[in-house]
Computed example of a mutant assay.
Amino acid sequence: MSLRENPVVVRALRFLGVGGFCFIVTLAVNYGLKFTVLGAHPTTAFLIANTVATVVSYVLSRQYTFQDRNDAYRKRTQFIGFCVVSAIGIIINSAPLYISRWVFGLHTPEVSFLVQETADFISGPVIGTALAMVFRWWALHKFVFPDEQKADKEVELAA
């Protein structure tokens, strides 16, 4: 079996593609808000940007990444699970930015604008996204879009 035929590899590549697209959405919304109406509230701008990207991610994940695990009768359960996992992911994603800004004090006037923006980018979109991505990959597989055959076997074994 080649790598392209392995369903886990295909799903992982699709997950990374959706994540890459949503990363761009996050950056666009974050910087759009941060440099216009939410300049004094960078964490809020980042939270809003992540929320917008999460909605996009749900649609793309359901229809593209996990299409083989997309059961119509589980749609409501999947949506609720995705929202819970995504809310936790947003907190994980935003925590490094919050820590950078408000714990380490990497914001103007304590540091230069360039240092502030570099720290914001590294802590939020880079470190935060990496941590949240690992969490989301694990949680979506485990709880939201589980392998139906494995889940059925586990239920049978438990009974």
Rank of each mutant, 00 (worst) to 15 (best):
G128L: 07
I92R: 09
T26G: 08
T108V: 13
N70F: 01
A40H: 10
L106P: 02
L106S: 07
C83E: 12
I88R: 04
L157W: 11
V37H: 14
F35A: 05
H41E: 14
N30R: 12
P146V: 07
L97E: 12
R74D: 10
P146H: 04
L131M: 09
Q67R: 11
V9E: 00
T36D: 14
F15C: 00
W137H: 00
I24D: 04
Y98Q: 09
T65E: 00
P96H: 09
L131T: 02
R74A: 13
V111H: 04
F79A: 08
V126S: 11
V103C: 12
S123M: 02
Y64F: 11
T43F: 15
K34G: 15
A12V: 00
N70Q: 01
G128N: 14
V134R: 02
N50R: 05
A119G: 03
F135G: 08
R69W: 01
V8F: 01
T43N: 14
Y58F: 07
Q149V: 08
A72S: 02
T108W: 10
V9L: 02
G124K: 08
T129K: 09
L13S: 03
D152G: 13
R69P: 04
V155T: 00
F113G: 13
I48P: 12
Q67M: 13
G105T: 03
Q116M: 05
I88F: 02
Y73A: 15
C83Q: 07
G105P: 11
G128K: 09
N93R: 01
V10F: 00
T54P: 00
M133S: 12
L47M: 15
Q67H: 13
F66D: 03
T54I: 05
V52Y: 00
K34Y: 15
R136P: 06
K142H: 05
A158N: 15
L16Y: 02
S86D: 10
E110F: 14
F143L: 05
K34I: 13
V134K: 07
L33V: 09
P146N: 04
Q78F: 01
T129H: 07
S112F: 06
S2Y: 03
G81S: 07
F46A: 13
V25A: 05
F143K: 04
V18W: 07
D152A: 10
R136S: 12
T43K: 07
S57N: 09
G32L: 04
L33C: 09
V9H: 00
A130L: 10
N70K: 00
P96G: 05
C22M: 03
F121W: 15
F35Q: 10
A87Y: 05
I48M: 11
P109N: 08
K75Q: 03
T118K: 12
L16C: 14
L114H: 10
V9G: 00
G17I: 04
S112N: 06
R136I: 07
A87V: 06
R101P: 08
K153N: 15
S57K: 02
W102N: 15
C83S: 12
L140T: 01
T77G: 04
F121Y: 14
A139E: 01
D68N: 08
L97Q: 06
I80G: 02
E156K: 14
L97G: 06
S86G: 12
